[in-house]
């Protein structure tokens, strides 16, 4: 079948894309003038001690050998150890991944729920006051810096009004860890207090992340709807007396969504980048705070691991988007 062919060809591209990502990230990490051996050994270490340490870490090899060794280890799931904690980087990352995924997935859902309907409304009311108002809101939504917005939200809703928790993921110990997604785990274990707490903690960080994403989706949905609203099939359906709501929310939106879905995949990348900032502000125990720590400590291998994991997730999400694409646009399959 044609759909399977498309999916397989995307999968095949997955490998070179990932390799390219690996190469770029590895080079950048090694170009930065830091010496991991010196960081570990401390300032008082002698040259001889440093040389031994470099040999242990494999740093005395030429860079292409280091790259080869890194890739070989990576293939067996080994990202090396953190220079500081000496823990497996892959373990740390996987433990923190669910927190970030939960944050970004809830945010993208919220962004879709806000951005798509308002994009449609903006388009069918194009150039009226409704459209203008939404335009002003969405442009400012994009222009506002997320760290500033996050802090404002904290100051207002947590500090001033005391309605929302200031930071963290949950109050108390949380549900038993099964998937690492607090919302899912608390539902599975029936721990409703944890569920409430987790949801409550999610509100401000997801708002911070979702609003700019919603603004982008709104612009794209609006453009997509405007493109099809004057098409012949909309004229036909209107002339045949199809109810307006059916024409707009089914016939038009299904077509407009094709470009919006592509956008959702790309937005996911910006959400991950945004999560680094938002997690720092809200003290969210996810990949973002880990990345910030690693960067501040020049923990090269940890940074490398983080970049690769985020890259894999991003490529994976876009692969998923491509698959969804073949379902919403049947012309791709033919």
């Amino acid at each position: 079948m044609r759909r399977l062919e498309i999916i397989l060809s995307r999968f095949v591209w997955f490998i070179p894309t990932l390799f390219g990502l690996l190469l770029v990230v590895f080079l950048i990490a090694n170009v930065v003038p830091t010496d991991p051996a010196r960081i570990i050994a401390g300032e008082n270490a002698t040259e001889a001690q440093l040389a031994i340490l470099r040999a242990q870490l494999g740093l005395d090899e030429p860079i292409y050998v280091q790259f080869f060794i890194y890739v070989r280890d990576l293939l067996s799931g080994d990202m090396g150890r953190s220079l500081y904690t000496q823990r497996e980087i892959s373990d740390d990352l996987l433990r923190r991944l669910p927190a970030t995924m939960e944050l970004t997935l809830v945010s993208i859902t919220l962004a879709i729920l806000i951005g798509v309907p308002f994009g449609v409304i903006s388009a069918i009311r194009a150039n009226t006051w409704v459209d203008q108002t939404l335009r002003v809101i969405s442009v400012s939504g994009l222009a506002v810096a997320s760290f500033w917005f996050a802090i404002e939200l904290q100051l207002f809703f947590s500090t001033r009004l005391g309605w929302m928790p200031l930071n963290g993921r949950i109050a108390g110990f949380g549900p038993e860890r099964i998937t690492g997604f607090l919302l899912i785990d608390s539902v599975i274990t029936g721990d409703w207090a944890s569920l409430r707490s987790a949801m409550w903690h999610l509100i401000l960080p997801t708002l911070t992340l979702a609003l700019p994403a919603a603004a982008t989706l709104l612009r794209f949905t609006r453009a997509g709807v405007l493109e099809v609203i004057n098409s012949n099939y909309v004229l036909y359906e209107t002339a045949m007396g199809f109810p307006r709501a059916l024409v707009v929310w089914k016939y038009v939106l299904r077509n407009a969504l094709i470009s919006t879905v592509t956008q959702i995949g790309l937005i996911f990348g910006t959400l991950f980048a945004g999560a680094v900032v938002v997690e720092a502000v809200f003290d969210w125990p996810g990949l973002g705070t880990y990345a910030v720590q690693s960067i501040l400590q020049s923990d090269t291998k940890a940074i490398l691991g983080f970049s690769i994991l985020v890259g894999v997730v991003f490529i994976g999400i876009n692969l998923l988007v491509d698959i969804v694409h073949t379902f919403i646009d049947p012309r791709m399959v033919k």
Binding site: S231, N232, Y233, L235, M240, G241, R254, N255, I258
Partner: peptide, 25 residues
């Protein structure tokens, strides 16, 4: 008008290639 549209008066468009929605069966 809305009650007769698509019931008492129907439409055959000029261009059958673009008058059906491409993403629905």
């Amino acid at each position: 008008q809305n009650r007769v549209r698509g019931r008492k008066v129907t439409f055959i468009p000029q261009d059958p290639f673009t008058s059906l929605n491409p993403v629905l069966t």
